[in-house]
Amino acid sequence: MKKDEFYIGYINQIPSKIKRKLKFTVWILVLVVIVFAVVFSFFQNKFKNSTFELTNVSEITGTFHSKPYPSVRIELSPNDYKNVLLLGFGKFGPDKDIENMESRLNSIEGKEVSIKGNLIYYNGKTLLQIADSEKFPVMKKESQLPERKINSLGEIEIEGEVIDPKCYFGVMKPGFGKIHRSCAVRCISGGIPPVFTTRSKEGNSEYFMITDSKGNKINHDILEYVGQPVKVKGALEQLDNWFILKLNVEDIELLKGNSKIYSN
């Protein structure tokens, strides 16, 4: 006679046929877990080797400039200069920190200062999340560097994506595209300089600080275009290791489809 098996959860003994079925099910589930884990981990897009030194505080010394966005200009080698973009904590620009510094030292525009913070760097660009602005820098000096030269390179029309450089150059993986769009909006809304990035057919990326046509900050006006493929046009300038793109927001064209930088 066929055994009428019946499972009751609170009775320890599990009928033999049901137990066999459960063992088989467990092995199937092990297989399913492995397949899901392999597919979802192995086939992720490659992450960039960008760096955010979250736990390491560095000190950089250079000439402070507030325009187009706050930065410290340092000399890498004779006549070779680099502008390190300054950032605040979290999703904020450096305005509060600079306010702290200038409340102690008065204006630091064009002065040499030593600023502490966490470095962010990738692909030749360096940024600094300012730390301890209520204590540092303790002094300012006259700048040792020659005046900045901004070279005008004419008009340009180019496709790419508006990103927030803090995440893109190190804090987030990935720091661009649809997944990151909301965060980029928050960062740029909080005062982090908007940066335009594009990628050539050869795979080389270029980065442009974006301002309005007069060279002023453009954070809030550009929010609706952040994190999406767009075509922009404007006046191109070069400031040491950075391009500056002066544009009218009305000239920005939203493009359909994925941004070219998705394949980075």
């Binding site: 192995f42 992450f47 080797n49």
Partner: peptide
């Protein structure tokens, strides 16, 4: 598996 495979094959995460 997820952490191991990602850290081995895509370590810049």
């Amino acid at each position: 598996l997820f952490w191991g495979i990602t850290l081995i094959t895509n370590s810049n995460t």
